[in-house]
């Protein structure tokens, strides 16, 4: 049997960093999209309300 090196800490660090970054990017994008949608909806309804009350 030849000597096979074992370097699990390096493997764990590589996977941990990659999965962590992917999760942060993915969840961040989803939250940002939801916030942007609700904010746009709020502004639109507010403007519509103001226009109908002004006319």
């Amino acid at each position: 049997m030849m000597h096979l090196p074992n370097h699990w800490p390096y493997i764990a660090a590589a996977y941990g960093l990659t999965i962590g970054c992917s999760l942060v990017l993915g969840i961040g994008a989803a939250l940002r999209l939801r916030r942007a949608k609700t904010r746009l909806a709020a502004v639109e309804s507010q403007l519509r309300h103001r226009e109908s009350s002004a006319s």
Binding site: L25, A29, L33, R35, A36, K37, R39, L40, L47
Partner: peptide
């Protein structure tokens, strides 16, 4: 992720315009 970010950016710019 890119589609979600780009959609969010479009919504944000519309909000700014309004």
């Amino acid at each position: 992720v890119i589609f979600a970010r780009l959609s969010a950016a479009i919504h944000e710019s519309r909000t700014r315009q309004l």
